[in-house]
Design a binder for these strands. Structure first.
Length: 476
RNA sequence: CGGCGUGUGGCUCAGCUUGGUAGAGCGCUACGUUCGGGACGUAGAGGCCGCAGGUUCGAAUCCUGUCACGCCGACCA
């Protein structure tokens, strides 16, 4: 947090975290603002991160039996209306299409805010027998939610995501799939994004509109706020009953399917920024970084320097590596590489070439070391692995150090006044207490973690007997 | 939806109070010198001052309206 800031263009985190975030997002050239509020241009540096997320998540999906499909982007109003809780949850934030060309439509259609209704409508006709089950489909697409307050990646009106929608013969199987996908997300976050998460179940107040149960992974940002980073919902047979999705089971009985849905969006890029970034810009975990190594030639116009740089690039072909051969000064290139979060920098100049070595600098700690050229490849391989694990350790430490617990109201209030982060506290299960806590502290229940602890016997808010230990926090 | 703020070359902004020939820095282009933590020189290109009305001999500047964006709040699976 207190690393020396070398780039003036980025506001320091401590000074103004929100401005820092905006600066990083634009200076790292992840996005540009567009002419439509809440809709952003995702630039190559940003989109390449998303492409890697897609690739790495998709291979995990496929390994668990997921098949990709694509659904229409328009939902007729009557279809959206079919599940009561669902429409109530989403209606306030959908965008409507009312005309086709010059003519008004007979029935207006919304641009999908999520595709449960489309999948349900499809499954109704597609599933007839237990032999058709399970259906484990996913789509990569964009959705639209007409948000009032928008922020790049964290909350935009149109965003990219994946949404998995499954149908199962039994409640047990649906529950299993719901948990399985949450674990896919959690493992992906830890192993690929180096972001530790808290896994748990949402309270009824916070769960998805129309779900029986919502599971979530919650990550803690550098400023101590929580970010819901992925969710997995068990719908039971609620949607199936609303849409009439029935199948004939082995016993020749007509039964309703049990469904799930689960999603991760470009919001996760916001998490990468706010978990790993520093005052010099973005810091990307090597696993997800579109460019892992940037080679920066020094005195590149001197005979042989650029050639050597290209030679090193070819030698490092196992990694995602680039040479910055633009005619900016080296100092400029260093800053650029740091703002973009490229994990490792290789500096190569005439002095190095003569000595048969080079200087490498890791982005996360900014530590510089000299390496002989014949050991470069191996050193970088080891360094990338080390950076990845160090980043996870550092993020874990931050999560642990900013997770508190409170057993009584005064203590609970005091922690939120003085600290920022997660606070573990007991809850009676009554929504009135959540409402009170939100009203008084602008804090929400993040989840009821799977790993329950006993902090106290009574609810931190009302003092009645406690049912669950809950993670509380301020959320994005 | 409420509060605050901002719209002037690509970017950041000055100019507006007190109306009178559109400015600076950065960036961009060309050439040269540089190069180990955002180098420098010289020469150049680039703007109906968000939009629409109004006042005025004359509007970036004053008035009215409008649109857009940003931040905060409310709301938000």
């Amino acid at each position: 947090m207190a690393e020396k800031k070398l780039v003036e263009a980025i506001t320091s985190m401590n000074e103004d975290f929100a401005q820092w975030y905006t600066d990083v997002v634009t200076k790292a050239e992840l996005i540009d603002y567009s002419n439509v509020k809440g809709c952003m241009v995702i630039k190559p540096a940003g989109y390449a991160i998303w492409e890697n997320i897609q690739k790495r998540l998709d291979e995990r999906f496929k390994a668990s039996g997921v098949e990709n499909v694509y659904m229409p982007m328009f939902i007729p109003e009557s279809l959206l209306q079919k599940e009561k809780d669902h429409v109530e949850g989403f209606a306030p934030e959908v965008a409507w299409v009312t005309h086709g060309g010059l003519n008004p439509l007979q029935e207006r259609m919304c641009v999908r805010p999520t595709s449960e209704t489309l999948f349900c409508d499809f499954y109704k006709g597609d599933i007839h027998s237990y032999r058709d089950l399970p259906r484990v489909y996913n789509q990569w697409c964009s959705v639209v939610r007409w948000e009032k307050e928008t922020r790049p990646f964290l909350r935009s009106r149109e965003f990219l995501w994946q949404e998995g929608h499954t149908a199962h013969a039994t409640a047990e199987e649906a529950e299993q799939r719901t948990e399985q996908m949450l674990n896919v997300y959690a493992d992906f976050c830890e192993e690929v994004l180096a972001i530790p998460v808290v896994k748990g179940r949402k309270t009824d107040k916070e769960k998805f509109a129309g779900a029986e149960a919502t599971y979530t992974i919650e990550a803690l940002m550098h400023d101590g706020k929580a970010l819901q980073s992925g969710t997995s919902h068990n719908f039971g047979d609620g949607f199936a009953k609303a849409f009439g999705i029935q199948f004939t089971d082995r016993d020749n009985q007509l039964k309703y399917v049990h469904q799930t849905s689960w999603g991760v969006s470009t919001r996760i890029i916001g998490a990468i920024i706010m978990v790993h970034g520093d005052d010099s810009g973005l810091v990307l975990p090597p696993e997800i970084a579109p460019t892992q190594v940037m080679i920066i030639p020094i005195q590149q116009k001197k005979e042989g320097v650029l050639d050597k740089a290209y030679e090193l690039r070819d030698k490092l072909g196992n990694f995602r590596v680039k040479v910055d051969d633009s005619d900016k000064s080296p100092g400029w290139k260093f800053s650029e590489q740091e703002m973009r979060g490229i994990p490792v920098r290789v500096e190569i100049g005439p002095k190095d070439i003569e000595a048969g070595k080079c200087v490498i600098c890791r982005r996360d700690t900014r530590e510089k070391i000299e390496v002989s050229l014949d050991q470069l490849e191996q050193t970088i391989a080891e360094l990338l692995t080390k950076i990845q694990s160090d980043m996870l350790s550092k993020a874990k430490r931050h999560l642990e150090e900013h997770t508190y617990s409170a057993s009584a109201w005064e203590e609970f209030v005091k922690v939120f006044e003085e600290k920022s982060g997660f606070v573990k506290a007991m809850w009676c299960g009554d929504q009135a207490c959540e409402d009170t806590i939100k009203e008084k502290l602008s804090v929400t229940s993040r989840c009821m973690p799977f790993e329950q602890e006993h902090i106290a016997d009574t609810c931190v808010c009302c003092g009645k007997p406690a049912k669950k230990m809950v993670y509380w926090g301020k959320a994005y």
